[in-house]
Design a binder for these strands. Structure first.
Lengths: 141, 141
DNA sequence: GGATAATAGTTGATTTTGTAACTAACAACC
DNA sequence: GGTTGTTAGTTACAAAATCAACTATTATCC
């Protein structure tokens, strides 16, 4: 008779924690801006690291190119980002946030800061540091 | 100019870590048993906590009832679990693993043990304990 | 005890994702 | 300089998740 506590299975805990913690923040981008998670992630990367190619977004955010492609198309429709052709290589297109996209980024970053602070408020500084460190290692970031 | 490191956003780290860590284990149930993640989770809960109603699986595993309903149907087709009508209330049906379902559970638990051990091998005992504690709290388990 | 509400679970329609094939542009090699 | 191979990104189709409506059964309340 095998006996195994699901709580001893880290991927399970990670998934549960990820789902639970994402749920609350989802309101910020979904309800407020009618945005999908992938779209929000693309905005985050462009806002944080500046204009880049779709390929770079894929690599950094580890999102498949088809998802990025669709997210970029949606964000362009919403006028939150623009594509610019790079003369050197017409296969690439430089993605940049528009003023409106920047505003969304700024707003969501504020929300993210508040949200995160509340999320880890119950942990000590040391616990927070270890948690972060472990997650980064597991994620391979 | 807002500046925010994505690594400071815990839900992001949690999602990345969850995705990365789940990917490897996915092979065990997907390729080996042609199983979906939800199916595997249902098996895990039945194997760990014994026979229960679909409703209970929903509550424990925090999976929506439609997903559970479909997972149960699939597992029944594969003859990994059986439904038994409870005479007291014919709306309920007791879900139990079959012998074959139990065997799958036992096998996957072995895999899970190995997988988890490898995943956290690089962390100290203290780190492992803190990580687990934090995740359980965030997940609200 | 009969109308109304609540519950367990299923089914169907819509949305989102994932997989694979495709187009367009460039690179390289002979 | 034309054939072959790569790369960036899109599109088409299949698989899966989500949401809402539905059925069947039990509980409640007058």
């Amino acid at each position: 008779m095998t006996d195994y506590d699901l709580k001893d299975f880290t991927p399970y805990l990670l998934n549960m924690a990820a789902e639970t913690s994402s749920l609350g923040f989802q309101r910020s981008y979904k309800e407020k801006y009618g945005m999908l998670r992938t779209e929000w992630r693309v905005i985050f990367h462009l806002g944080q690291y500046g204009p880049m190619h779709a390929k770079e977004v894929c690599a950094r955010a580890r999102i498949h190119k088809t998802k990025v492609s669709r997210a970029v198309a949606a964000l362009e429709r919403k006028r939150l980002l623009t594509r610019e052709e790079v003369s050197a290589d017409r296969r690439h297109e430089k993605l940049s946030l528009t003023r409106a996209g920047r505003a969304v980024f700024d707003d969501l970053v504020q929300e993210a800061r508040r949200f995160d602070a509340a999320l880890v408020a119950g942990f000590t500084q040391e616990e927070q540091a270890i948690l972060k460190n472990c997650l980064i290692k597991i994620a391979g970031l």
